[in-house]
């Protein structure tokens, strides 16, 4: 018998976790899942259908102006809420005045930078799950030519056990498939999104296949999954904002600062099953751009009290002439 077999003999195959250990670990995981995905990557998996991204030019549509006119019109308390939020979003989406759409020229990139403060959870010495804020930077460079190479620059911050060397990774991949050939950074072919609000809502709702706490929550999450990339062309983005307005339980809160301190209007939704937790996208009413996201706790969880901001991001979309 060689030394390797001797070592294998030293392995204790009878060592098993107790049922309590298994239950605690499972509860931590289930709680994590129930709180929603903590990273963009987990919520932006695959889109086998995505082949090309439409090159959208200047469009005569006054989404931004409409949003200024209506969203800024009132300081909206959370109590004002669903009806008001639905109204302002729908009105904004139907306003049609010219506005600028960011389109990279040949050789350039549409760059979406996400500065995220998400929770990183670990187990402490007593076996309890402890979560702490961790800042990440995710720079996605989408080329003007959809067939060219995309680039993801990602700094995982203090989160350990992710990259083998340091916290930073730079990934290049065609079609935004940074994390495997079947993955894509954007979840849909933007050309598939109807550019009219009601149609966009029907399009989203028809794709519901179960899951989430409710159909409405699932619709809301799938729309915000698309929007948070920061790469959605303006006409489709306007239609998706309108679609959001059609989801029951939508709320609007003015003057919400993103992680970089830029203020906008937070569009969210109260889900009764989530004990009041709200997932929100923050919109710049002057441009209609998505400038961040935040999660507000509805109850005491992992040390946060009700109405405390659990997770916050800042999203900035610009044109870049080069990529790392």
């Amino acid at each position: 018998m060689d030394e390797l077999t001797l070592l294998r003999n030293a392995r204790d195959d009878t060592r098993e976790p107790t049922p309590e250990m298994i239950a605690e670990g499972r509860e931590a995981l289930v709680n994590r899942i129930a709180r929603g995905d903590g990273t963009t990557t987990t919520e932006l998996p695959r889109s086998a259908r995505r082949r090309t991204l439409p090159r959208v030019t200047w469009v005569a549509a006054g989404v931004a102006a409409g949003m200024i006119a209506v969203l800024v019109a009132g300081n909206i308390s959370l109590g004002a809420q669903s009806a008001y939020a639905s109204g302002v979003l729908r009105a904004a989406a139907t306003e049609t005045i010219a506005y600028a759409n960011l389109v990279p020229d040949s050789g350039e990139y549409l760059r979406a930078r996400t500065h995220a403060r998400w929770q990183a959870c670990t187990g402490d010495e007593d076996g309890a799950v402890v979560c702490a804020p961790n800042d990440q930077i995710l720079d996605v460079f989408m080329p003007a030519d959809p067939a060219a190479e995309w680039v993801l620059f990602r700094d995982w911050g203090n989160q350990s056990g992710i990259t083998t060397d340091g916290s930073i990774e730079t990934i290049r991949a065609a079609d935004g498939a940074f994390y495997g050939p079947d993955s894509s950074w954007v979840t849909v072919d933007y050309a598939d999104i109807p550019t009219e609000g009601a149609a966009a809502y029907d399009w989203i709702d028809s794709q519901y296949t179960g899951g989430s706490a409710s159909r409405d929550e699932d619709d809301f999450v799938r729309i915000t999954d698309i929007l948070r990339s920061g790469l959605v062309p303006a006409p489709q983005r306007a239609a998706l904002l309108d679609a959001l307005s059609r989801i029951p339980g939508v709320t609007a809160t003015d003057d919400v600062a993103n992680l970089d301190g830029v203020t906008g209007t937070a569009i969210g939704r109260n889900e009764p099953v989530r004990a009041g937790e709200r997932q929100e996208v923050i919109i710049d009413p002057a441009t209609g751009l998505i400038i961040g996201e935040r999660t507000v706790s509805g109850t005491t969880v992992f040390g946060w009290g009700p109405d405390e901001v659990v997770e916050l991001t800042a999203i900035e979309t610009t044109i870049a002439t080069t990529a790392p």
């Binding site: 976790p17 250990m21 605690e24 670990g25 931590a28 995981l29 994590r32 959870c121 670990t122 187990g123 402490d124 010495e125 076996g127 799950v129 056990g161 992710i162």
Partner: peptide, 11 residues
Amino acid sequence: GQDVMSETFLV
């Protein structure tokens, strides 16, 4: 070991 087991699945 229990900590690592739990954290592994969160990561």
